[in-house]
């Protein structure tokens, strides 16, 4: 039986999202599809799968991405869904522990990729917000409300990027001593 759950995670909460998906899998609900704020599950044996998600470097259809996914499949990993460049993977728990990264360097690289996704969008929202609010205040007409919304989103995005950067700095400090 299929079960659809509506839930929202910010991009910088991807490890929270991953943890939630793993809790669902532990309860016997395996992820089979992803959409906007939408997760589709199918019943499985509790604990049968482990779930990981990753932001790919390229679009899913890109040859490089496809090659990477084929490579993962060789190691017993299955792609269960994607949302733009975010890809959701699962692996049978019986086949051993499931991690996509086993060293600090590749974790740092992944974080950098997510920051590079969040920052430009936040910056653009801030710029549009300032310009809209500015226009509306000066001329008395225009899109003040939309402008405030852009500003709020922009600030929130910057907060997210700041959280991700903090995490990245922590890993980088560790990488000076360990691999």
């Amino acid at each position: 039986m299929r079960k659809i759950v509506k839930k929202w995670f910010w991009v910088w909460e991807f490890d929270k999202e991953e943890q939630w998906l793993n809790e669902m899998a532990a309860k016997g609900l395996a992820l089979v599809g992803v959409g906007f704020c939408r997760y589709e599950f199918e019943e499985c044996v509790p604990g049968e799968y482990q779930v990981r998600l990753e932001l790919l470097e390229n679009q899913l259809q890109h040859a490089e991405s496809q090659q990477y996914i084929r490579f993962l499949e060789e190691t017993g990993v299955e792609q269960v869904g994607n949302y733009f460049r975010w890809v959701y993977f699962r692996k049978k728990t019986a086949d051993g522990p499931f991690d996509l990264y086993s060293d600090l360097e590749s974790r740092i690289k992944h974080l950098k990729r997510i920051i590079a996704l969040v920052l430009p969008i936040s910056g653009a929202n801030l710029c549009i917000g300032f310009s809209n609010v500015g226009n509306a205040v000066r001329t008395g007409i225009g899109l003040a409300n939309v402008g405030y919304l852009n500003l709020a989103l922009g600030l929130l995005g910057c907060f997210g990027a700041w959280k991700l950067s903090k995490k990245r700095k922590r890993l980088e400090a560790e990488a000076q001593i360990f691999e």
Binding site: E54, Y68, F71, L72, G96, D99, L100, Y101, S102, S106
Partner: peptide
């Protein structure tokens, strides 16, 4: 002791 994760290995 050393468990290579597939993503790290690919890179």
């Amino acid at each position: 002791r050393v468990r290579l994760a597939a993503g790290t290995l690919y890179g």
